[in-house]
Simulated scan of single mutants.
Amino acid sequence: MGRITTRRPLTKITVGRDPQRRVDTLAVEEPLEIRINGNALAVTMRTPGHDVELAAGFLVSEGAICRTEQFRAAIHCGGPGSGGGGNEYNILDIALTPDAVVPATAARNFYTSSSCGLCGKASIDAVKTVSNFDVAADTVTLDAEFLATFPDRLRERQSAFDKTGGLHAAALFDATSGELLVLREDIGRHNAVDKVVGWALLSNRLPLRASVLQVSGRASFELVQKAVMAGIPILAAVSAPSSLAAELAEASGTTLVGFLRGETMNVYSRPDRILAESSLSAIPG
Rank of each mutant, 00 (worst) to 15 (best):
R3W: 13
R3N: 12
R3A: 15
I4M: 11
R8S: 09
K12T: 01
R17E: 15
P19E: 06
Q20G: 00
L26P: 00
L26C: 06
P31W: 05
P31L: 09
I34H: 09
I34N: 11
I34D: 10
G38H: 08
G38F: 07
G38N: 10
P48D: 12
V52Y: 02
E53K: 05
L54F: 13
F58K: 11
A64M: 10
I65A: 08
I65S: 10
I65Y: 04
I65P: 02
Q70D: 11
F71S: 07
R72G: 00
A74P: 01
C77L: 14
G78L: 09
G78T: 03
G78R: 03
G79T: 09
G81C: 10
G81M: 12
G81A: 12
G83Y: 06
G83W: 07
N87R: 09
E88M: 13
N90M: 13
D93P: 05
I94L: 08
I94K: 02
P98K: 11
P103N: 07
A107I: 08
S113F: 04
C116E: 10
A122M: 08
S123A: 14
A126V: 07
K128Y: 11
K128P: 00
V130L: 12
S131I: 13
F133L: 05
F133H: 04
D134P: 05
D134N: 15
V135R: 02
V135H: 03
V135C: 08
V135L: 07
A137W: 00
T139V: 13
T141N: 01
E145Y: 03
F146C: 03
L147V: 05
A148N: 14
L154P: 05
S159Q: 10
D162Q: 14
K163W: 07
F173Q: 07
D174H: 04
S177E: 09
S177I: 04
E179F: 03
D186W: 06
G188H: 02
N191Y: 03
A192Q: 03
A192D: 01
A192N: 04
V196R: 02
V197W: 01
G198W: 02
G198R: 02
L201A: 10
L201D: 09
S203Q: 14
R205F: 01
R205W: 01
P207R: 08
L208T: 01
A210E: 14
S211G: 06
V212L: 05
L213E: 04
S216H: 09
G217R: 05
A219M: 12
A219F: 06
S220T: 15
F221V: 03
E222W: 12
E222H: 15
L223C: 02
Q225K: 13
K226F: 04
A227G: 13
M229L: 12
M229Q: 15
A230W: 02
I232G: 04
I232T: 11
P233I: 11
I234R: 00
A237C: 13
V238R: 12
S239N: 12
A240G: 00
S243Y: 12
A246N: 13
A246E: 15
L248H: 13
E250C: 07
A251E: 14
A251H: 10
S252T: 15
G253D: 08
G253M: 10
L256I: 07
V257H: 03
F259R: 08
E263G: 14
E263T: 14
T264L: 06
D272P: 00
L275A: 09
A276C: 13
S279P: 00
G285P: 01
